[in-house]
Simulated scan of single mutants.
Amino acid sequence: MGYIMDLRKAVGTRPLIMVGSCVLIFNNEGHLLLQRRTDSLDWGTIGGSLELGESLEEAASRELYEEAGLRAKSFKFITVLSGEDMYYRYPHGDEIYNVTAVYEAIEVEGMPKINDNEGLELNYFSLEEPIPNLNPSIEVILRKAGYITKW
Rank of each mutant, 00 (worst) to 15 (best):
R89T: 07
E121M: 07
S55M: 06
S82A: 13
I46N: 01
H31K: 11
L134G: 02
R89C: 06
N123Q: 14
I46Q: 08
D42E: 10
L70S: 05
V99C: 08
Y103S: 13
D94H: 05
L81M: 01
L127C: 12
G12E: 07
L81H: 00
S61H: 12
R14L: 14
Y65A: 07
I78R: 09
V102S: 12
A72Y: 09
R37V: 00
I78G: 09
V19E: 15
I96P: 02
V99P: 03
N98Q: 05
G53A: 15
G69N: 06
V108L: 02
D85L: 09
V99Q: 09
L142K: 07
G47W: 05
A101P: 07
Y103V: 13
P130Q: 09
T79L: 06
V19S: 15
H31A: 11
T79S: 14
N28C: 03
I25C: 14
I96G: 04
G44I: 01
L56W: 11
Y87N: 07
T45L: 09
D39Y: 12
V19C: 15
G48P: 09
R71P: 03
M111C: 02
G2N: 09
V140W: 04
T149M: 07
D116P: 02
K73L: 12
E139C: 02
G47T: 08
P91S: 09
E109V: 08
L70R: 13
D94P: 00
I141P: 01
K150R: 10
N117L: 01
L142V: 08
G30C: 03
L134P: 10
S126W: 11
I148S: 00
A72W: 04
K113H: 10
A10P: 00
L16H: 14
N117I: 01
G30D: 02
L16Y: 12
E139H: 03
E139G: 03
E104D: 07
A105Y: 14
Q35M: 11
Y87M: 13
I96C: 03
G83W: 04
T38M: 02
K73T: 13
N123T: 14
E51Q: 14
V80G: 03
E128S: 13
Y90V: 02
M111H: 04
I96R: 02
S82V: 03
L41C: 11
S126E: 05
D116F: 04
I138M: 00
L142F: 06
E67C: 05
H31N: 15
K144R: 13
K9H: 10
I96M: 04
K150F: 10
A59S: 15
L7V: 12
I4Y: 13
P91A: 07
S74Q: 01
R8T: 08
Y88K: 14
L120F: 02
I25K: 11
L16C: 15
E67V: 00
I138P: 00
L7I: 11
S74W: 07
R36G: 08
L64D: 05
K113C: 04
N133M: 01
I78D: 11
N27Y: 01
L122H: 01
L142N: 03
I141R: 00
P130D: 11
T79F: 06
I46G: 03
